[in-house]
Amino acid sequence: MTALNATTSNVPLTAPLSRAKVGMASLIFMESAFFSAFLVTYLYYIGKSPDGPQPLDCLELNMVLINSVCLLSSSITVVLAVRSLARGAMGAFRIWLAVTILLGLEFLLGTGYEWWGLIEDKGLTIQSNAFGTNFYSLVGFHAFHVLVGLVLLIGVFILSLFGCINPARDHQRVDVATWYWHFVDVVWILVFTLVYIVGRVPQGAAA
């Protein structure tokens, strides 16, 4: 036994990777696989629903551009929030976090508003045609993930209001949590490109 304990001391005890980071990275990897299934399906169906409401007629860019700007800029504000937290500036942290949450809320409400318009005015529902099916599924799942991220951020915000967030102790955890928010943003870039740019093409001959 003694000979073996001797070797013990030679080997430094280091934890090379943080398990929170690896865990979050794996989660994001998994979610990417999930979204890629929907993205590929969307791509596959582009131009394949001649009947019913058409993307060119339904999708208007003005609303969704505002939403996109909000969501994308929220990635910046959340970085600012984490930086403030790392500096120990709790006030700035709360403000930036609140801004992030508001931007996220705007995105969700804007999406809801857009959907409402689509359903009421354009008559596009998940049952209309392949376009409707894919549109609501893809955008809906993304919105759901935004919601989850938002709940996460609101949770952090509430904790910080009650003084439960300790910069030195928690800033890494908060940082890892915000990775998820960035991920949701990146997915949006893909969704936006696919749905509002690539997908706004004529759908073959209308019946």
Binding site: F29, A33, F34, A37, I126, Q127, A130, S137
Partner: peptide, 23 residues
């Protein structure tokens, strides 16, 4: 990699069956 794809496909199937989607 694989299970999320199944989850996605199954969600689509669920939408087909419950919401009348057309996947």
């Amino acid at each position: 990699v694989a299970i999320p794809i199944l989850t996605a496909a199954q969600s689509m199937l669920l939408f087909d069956r419950t919401l009348g989607a057309h996947f």
